[in-house]
């Protein structure tokens, strides 16, 4: 296999990312590590090269490729840093097969520790400390894998509560969460973001959200629309809980959501969604079908936004309960424990 090309499994992964077949911080990270495991399994060091240095360049090339299909998430960047670090500390005396096997095992451990175990710890801590109570009406937004796990577990513990799933165009990720909760028998309501201020009967008692990243100043980067939900929650005096695994904590500081954001495909906005009639006449041809012919018209599809720290009551990671103002300190502590599992 020529290493100047991209491994087919990674090509396929890139396609899935581009089409949002795999989305969400944890899912994308897990898929990437699983795929890289295959790449490493298939890898052989070219003659006159050291595994450590060459494999690092191979990994970099594949990461760069994935970045062109869709910008890397914070979770993926953390995994890449981890992998490169593990490669860099490989003993030069270690036979290649052992080195590869070790890396593959490490990557599995990363997922087990940073995601699976972390999520279990988050769920346990949240429920053990009584942060979901009988009678709660929990508002959540979009799809978060850890929030899904939390709500399912709370239900399994026989706590009676209700969920309101808020959602938005163009991705409607909330419908995925809704399906999961309904299948488990949790009473649910569903609404779009535009309806959130109207939620009065029953009124949400708390908001639980997921995150793509926790920034240095305690603000949260998450799916576009999250910040609005948190703002409305603060105004309605409902506490906002953000569940985020440690590996999503970063030292980045972003003061606004505009300059760096990930721009999605404009076509998504214009595509007539099957779920609703788009034109006022009730037809199914989008009003925007020839938007490209209108010179002055642009379509903007932002994927993320930033929820400021003052709109967040509590961040929960596997390290426990964290006030947003302490996020950077927690990040520093996590950084100091680089090797895990």
């Amino acid at each position: 296999m020529k290493w100047t090309t991209i491994h087919p499994a990674v090509l396929n992964l890139g396609l899935q990312y581009a089409e949002w077949g795999i989305a969400g911080g944890n899912a994308r990270c897990t898929a990437m590590l699983n795929t890289f495991a295959r790449v490493i399994a298939d890898y052989t060091t070219p003659p006159h090269q050291t595994l450590s240095r060459h494999l690092t360049s191979v990994v970099s090339r594949h990461v760069d490729f994935l970045n062109t299909t869709r910008a890397l998430s914070t979770s993926m960047k953390a995994a890449v840093r981890f992998l490169k670090h593990e490669i860099s500390v490989l003993s030069p005396d270690l036979p290649d097969e052992d080195a590869k096997a070790g890396l593959i095992a490490q990557m599995r451990s990363f997922v087990e520790a940073k995601i699976d175990f972390a999520d279990k710890a988050i769920v346990k801590e949240t429920l053990d400390k009584g942060k979901i109570r009988p009678g709660d009406v929990i508002l959540t937004y979009g799809f978060s894998s850890v929030v899904n796990k939390l709500l399912l577990k709370a239900h399994a513990r026989k706590i009676p509560f209700r969920v309101v799933v808020a959602d938005a165009r163009p991705k409607f990720e909330g419908q995925r969460l809704l399906a999961s909760l309904v299948a488990a028998g949790i009473p649910c309501s569903y609404c779009l973001l535009t309806a959130v201020p109207s939620l009065t009967a029953p009124r949400p008692t708390k908001v639980i959200l997921g995150a793509s990243a926790v920034l240095a100043n305690g603000s949260i980067m998450s799916r576009a629309g999250t910040a609005s939900v948190a703002l409305l929650a603060r105004m309605a005096r409902a506490p906002v809980i953000v569940c985020a695994e440690n590996y999503k904590f970063t030292e980045t500081l972003r003061l606004d959501a505009f300059v760096w954001n990930e721009l999605g495909d404009s076509e998504e906005l214009s595509a007539a969604a099957a779920t609703m009639p788009v034109t006022s006449t009730g037809g199914h041809v989008s009003v925007l079908h020839n938007w490209r012919d209108i010179a002055s018209l642009k379509l903007l599809n932002l994927h993320y936004d930033i929820t400021p720290a003052e709109d967040v009551t509590l961040i929960i990671s596997e390290s426990g309960f964290i006030p947003p103002s302490s996020a950077y300190m927690v990040f520093k502590e996590i950084e100091q424990n680089v090797s895990l599992a």
Partner: peptide, 9 residues
């Protein structure tokens, strides 16, 4: 209060 929270962590 933020410093105290840090101390508690």
């Amino acid at each position: 209060p933020g410093r105290v929270a840090d101390v508690m962590i």
